[in-house]
């Protein structure tokens, strides 16, 4: 009985994929890529940006309080002379 029944599984009709399948897949893929790129930006880009702008803000605070501006370029020029 089981064999007959299982052989009939292959006879079952399967509906055709919807006509808009490719477009929906393209949309879903684009959405997923966008999310992935946003996460990439968040994980890799944001720490770099925070570090970069954070240093500028810290140095602005240091300059406001002490009046001393640590200019790396001037220091490099002095060292080369």
């Amino acid at each position: 009985m089981a064999d007959d029944f299982l052989q009939r599984l292959a006879e079952l009709e399967v509906a055709a994929p919807p006509a808009e399948f490719d477009r929906q897949l393209h949309d879903r893929l684009n959405h997923r890529l966008m999310v992935q790129q946003f996460l990439d930006l968040l994980v890799r880009g944001m720490p770099w940006a925070l570090l970069h702008f954070g240093r500028a803000i810290v140095e602005l605070c240091v300059f406001s309080i002490s009046g001393h501006f640590a200019d790396e370029r001037k220091k490099e020029n002095r060292d080369s002379l």
Binding site: L9, V14, A15, A16, P17, F21, Q24, L25, L29, R32
Partner: peptide, 23 residues
């Protein structure tokens, strides 16, 4: 699509699953 349809049994879930497979 055929595998998804046979395993899930309805068009809506099969569509979702087949797209997920390609993603």
């Amino acid at each position: 699509w055929r595998i998804c349809f046979r395993l899930l049994g309805n068009e809506q879930d099969s569509n979702d699953a087949a797209q997920e497979v390609f993603v």
